[in-house]
């Protein structure tokens, strides 16, 4: 089938297999490989992107379902890659990533969280990221990074 999308601000048209998952559309068709797949059960959040500004797990959305809609991945977060987005900056400053595999999803989930709740408490950050797994950081610095981004400390 044919779909039209806007990915990281750019409009595009693609002919796709009906069963194509959004995550593979982004990775294999759009060449945006930052978004990772970490599980088969919609559990880990590594694939998180924004769909019309809201966080979704792109492994559990069909590319067909984003026809006519707008998708943002971590690659599209900071305008032309110049200045990092405050969440990206905070993740670096607070060492909120190690191997980096969970990171694009974690960053996008955090961006969405802060959009809805610009001044979260630590508990709200933890709950807000419950759908994103990280094996490296123990979440400690991820939580600090999100709180710092909320405070504008790193921006």
């Amino acid at each position: 089938m044919k779909i039209g999308t806007t990915v990281n601000g750019a409009a595009r048209q693609d002919e796709i297999e009906d069963r194509l998952l959004l995550v593979h559309y982004l990775r294999d068709r759009c060449g945006l490989t930052a978004t990772n797949v970490g599980c088969d059960t919609t559990s880990c959040g590594a694939c998180t992107v924004l769909l019309d500004g809201e966080s979704v797990k792109s492994c559990t959305v069909l590319a067909a379902q984003v026809d006519g809609r707008e998708v943002t991945t971590v690659e599209g977060l900071s305008a032309d890659g110049a200045d990092p987005h405050p969440v990206q900056a905070a993740f670096r400053q607070e060492h909120g990533l190690q191997c980096g595999f969970c990171t694009p999803g974690m960053v996008m989930a955090s961006v969405s969280l802060l959009r809805d709740n610009p001044k979260p408490t630590e508990q709200e950050v933890r709950e807000g990221l419950e759908g994103n797994f990280c094996r490296c950081t123990g979440y400690h610095n991820i939580v600090r990074a999100v709180l710092a981004a909320a405070d504008g400390v790193s921006s």
Binding site: T42, G45, L51, S55, V56, K57, T60, G128, E130, G131
Partner: peptide, 8 residues
């Protein structure tokens, strides 16, 4: 679920 799941 989680926020992402509740968004869909």
């Amino acid at each position: 679920g989680d926020r992402q799941i509740r968004h869909r």
